[in-house]
Amino acid sequence: MNKKVILVGHFGVGKTSLVQQFVHSKFSEAYLTTIGVKIDKKEVDVDGLKVNLLIWDIAGETAQSKVPKSYQLGAHGVLYVFDLSRPSTYNNLHEQLDYIKELLPGVPIEVLANKKDLLTEEETKQILSGLSLEIRTTSAKTGEYVEEAFLRLTKAMMA
């Protein structure tokens, strides 16, 4: 079974690093800067069921509306990534998520606060409480919660 997952968020939040950490593949690295998307594939096992995740790592934009719709359409799941150390990447989070929900109604979205390793626990807590959303923290650098984030999204897609 194949499922399309898109990774979206501002430029430089660590989307590509998250995929690299999860997939360890460099199939279409060059295309990311050329046409704005990089596609990777990884098979995961969800409760005994093999699922092929086709991960579309979409080049970062300050507003989701600037990303070609065609890259996002048909996605079965979304990973929205922001950078905990750069407020400009999460200041308009609700607006961005509303845009995605409208474009992809009913599609599960996992919001990831990346670069956890750059902040203290206290600072992270403070930022997340201000956003009042269910957000998971990740670190592409240490690999913390990366695999779990993809698996959690896959389970939500299969539900």
């Binding site: 199939f27 295309y31 704005g36 998307v37 596609i39 990777d40 086709l54 579309w56 890259y71």
Partner: peptide, 8 residues
């Protein structure tokens, strides 16, 4: 992946 890249 080829199908994905062709679409992109």
């Amino acid at each position: 992946m080829v199908a994905g890249m062709l679409t992109a």
